[in-house]
Design a protein around this nucleic acid. Sequence first.
DNA 1: AAATAAATTTAGATATATCTAAAAATAAAT
DNA 2: ATTTATTTTTAGATATATCTAAATTTATTT
Lengths: 218, 218
Amino acid sequence: MNTFAEENYLKAILSLSIQGEELVSTNSIATELNTSAASVSDMLKKLQEKKLIIYKKYKGVALNKQGKSIAVNILRKHRLWETFLVKKLDFNWDEVHDVAEQLEHIKSEELIDKLDSFLYYPKFDPHGEVIPTKEGTIPQTDRVLLSEIEENTNGIVLGVSLDETSFLQYLNKLKIEIGTEIQIFDRIDFDKSVNISINNKKQNISNEVAKHLLIKNK
Amino acid sequence: MNTFAEENYLKAILSLSIQGEELVSTNSIATELNTSAASVSDMLKKLQEKKLIIYKKYKGVALNKQGKSIAVNILRKHRLWETFLVKKLDFNWDEVHDVAEQLEHIKSEELIDKLDSFLYYPKFDPHGEVIPTKEGTIPQTDRVLLSEIEENTNGIVLGVSLDETSFLQYLNKLKIEIGTEIQIFDRIDFDKSVNISINNKKQNISNEVAKHLLIKNK
DNA sequence: AAATAAATTTAGATATATCTAAAAATAAAT
DNA sequence: ATTTATTTTTAGATATATCTAAATTTATTT
Ligand SMILES: [Mn+2]
Ligand SMILES: [Mn+2]
Ligand SMILES: [Mn+2]
Ligand SMILES: [Mn+2]
């Protein structure tokens, strides 16, 4: 049985791997978890001993099979709970992340099975993020980040890759939500911002925001 | 913010107070929480410093106003979660206690408010135990324990005062559930067991079981 | 290649929550 | 009222998870 802290570290490593880091660095984990690099080193040693990661001092860390399985399961629980909170308890999409951070650590396989069934086996969470299967796979989707999308195309927002309150409330203000149709014009070289229009209203989206918008071309 | 351990100690003290101990003893807390008397002493010192209990060394402990408020709130959360698990997720009444032990520690007032609303403000949990109000009061009921009920009367089982799996599964076997009508004949002096009948079938109920059955006379 | 900077790990502390064994206080028995 | 037994507390360890500051390794400049 793993502690909350161990589970959070495994989830952080998974998240950084998905974002593209092959060998995840100590510092990026520290940033992700708002803790010190020293604490990360301590915990990596411990996870290494528990045989959940492949860790080479000064080089970086990756999840091994068992570590990945645990991390994906936490992610599954996180997203199922978020779905429950929005679909059943009427929370808004920008209010659920912090509570899900707690609920994801509840230990009961039967609970999650029944929650999944109660929600009619959802495929996506309230942020459009894909929910991993009970078997531990993360279904692949054909979404592209707005920060990397081709210029002069049309698309539809299918999700966000970040579920922090401040980000989601900013999207609310920009009138960007799941299902919003957008036209993509061009990307500015200088700051990597993107010019788009929503309902024929032109606007400029910063790279910081564009990096977290999942778009499907149409 | 209190730790899980602190919350569990406060809840244990509340539970023992309700069961009749005016000054709760170190040993009874140790038994209730399956821990050592030494650990209890350590924690009582800590809760004393946090001003949540009234503690006199070697004498015993009681909750103060703030400690009671916290404990009642944990009990409320425990029973609301149990209700959710049975009513919405189709758990049986003998399967929910352990998961509720985890869920009761989730910190979010809004979550509990919304859960309460989602369940249509239930007054009793799946074991017939009364759910404390948001304001922190425990509504009084006129139930009597089978171990203390008057002889030669009729009654109906409205609840149990213990929600451990082994006890509830034994009740399932005895065909005793909430709503079961029983006739009470007499109480045996020697072992305080009670002779009753259910559907005209006579049986003898041990004091250990009778102590946890909440009956309403009719 | 050597010097400097950045990233990472280790050393040494602190805080929480446990435990066993020993000491102290209280209760019960003689 | 002593002695004995029980209950409770303290002393001293262990385990987890953090931190800051110092040491070490790796990467970048000059
Ligand atoms: Mn978490
Ligand atoms: Mn999400
Ligand atoms: Mn608990
Ligand atoms: Mn209950």
